[in-house]
Design a binder for these strands. Sequence first.
DNA 1: GGAATAGTGTCTTTTAGACATTATGTA
DNA 2: TACATAATGTCTAAAAGACACTATTCC
Lengths: 249, 249
Amino acid sequence: MSDAVAPAGYDPSAYPPFAVTSDIVVLTIRGGELSVLLVERGNEPYAGCWALPGGFVDIDEPGEETARRELVEETGLEISSFHLEQLRTYSAPQRDPRMRVVSTAYLAFLPDLPAPVAGDDAARARFFAVRDIEAGEVTLAFDHDQILADAVERARSKIEYTTLAAAFVEKPFTLGDLRRVYECVWGTRLHPSNFARKVLSTPGFVRSLDVRGASQFEGGRVGALYETGDATVLHPAILRPTADEEDER
Amino acid sequence: MSDAVAPAGYDPSAYPPFAVTSDIVVLTIRGGELSVLLVERGNEPYAGCWALPGGFVDIDEPGEETARRELVEETGLEISSFHLEQLRTYSAPQRDPRMRVVSTAYLAFLPDLPAPVAGDDAARARFFAVRDIEAGEVTLAFDHDQILADAVERARSKIEYTTLAAAFVEKPFTLGDLRRVYECVWGTRLHPSNFARKVLSTPGFVRSLDVRGASQFEGGRVGALYETGDATVLHPAILRPTADEEDER
DNA sequence: GGAATAGTGTCTTTTAGACATTATGTA
DNA sequence: TACATAATGTCTAAAAGACACTATTCC
């Protein structure tokens, strides 16, 4: 902040009418696909279009709180606690045709959820496979395609050097479950044995529960169960294959 | 954005009075120290305190443009083009005692600059060693200590896996110059030969000019000169020593 | 010459990646 | 039984890190 136009004796009619909003990108793994939660807009502009959940920030409300509140109001998803981080702020002057809207996007990583229901302001709410949106089968309202692209890139990058991949699975989980998170988010296949070696050699990534149980996703031999460890960053990182692998799962 | 409180027929007096600002963190290397540009505030609140340059966003102005404009207005630094990226947005309700101010911070990496001069709204402007601020010798206005800490961590992290370290040196530069950037930003020493091997084995990081010249910083044998290459990301990354090195240069 | 940096080369350890093999569960 | 996944182990290549030694330039 500078001292310019210091609004000490504030005159609302003289001050430019900025709107401040929060949008939330909820990513999860559903049916082997990285998926994002969208709501169908009921009102203009972009009525009938799919968009990210979000809404206007109250004057005394932290932006992150707005994101959590709108998620509940628009989709009925009531989740006790989950990882939520700021993505970035979108403030192009014409991004909303109504007025100048400065929107801060937040990013949430969640394990597979019960189906959402439409809430107050949204006609419908459901998960979409990110792959379909990237393929252009769905076009989002406002600049939400760009926000989603930034969010997915953040997710793909962040699971490399943090333990956030574990936020996508219910605990307890098997190493196969965790590996499938990486495969779904990156859209590649990983060697199971090399992956397990890396995860287990990273202190604090996972903690063994010394019991066995079925995978959350697929059949076959049941594996050892793990829970999330204390670490938040990974040394060394688990790096993405450098795009010379086979294309898809 | 949701449809809530859609301000189609907009009534300024009914809409909460948000202020939207941009702050800019200008980092450079001066005298072997990672340094940040600060301005001394002329007005309340925090009059006489040092703060990051910044100011209110115009209603039809992109936030990034505000950051560039305020940098010139407050410090007189007229730089043609430089790397500027969004850091994050700070919107705690009480971060400014006057009113609700949502501020987006931007981060610039620059080579050593001529001394700045105070501009319109700032009493003085000068560079401070980040080390001194981290040591608590200077306390910044508002939440700018937090913004600076986030910016420095971003810089320390980003030179690991991008070519941004080159933005801190004038081109042409020697490999010693580039290594000193890493050493100043991380506060560590690096093995000159291993560093050179890594940089030269990373395609597109630097391009040899096939001439020799003096280092920008220190004496000794003059080395080969390089310019910035085409790459923007580094494969493999140049990782920070894991905090079991000697403390300082 | 002395000091400081540039540059080359070598050796060891760690990590990544590919892959073979065996074990154990489900349909 | 067929099949899918878990788990262990081996081999090779790449990269990191430590360090010795020579070369060049400024003072």
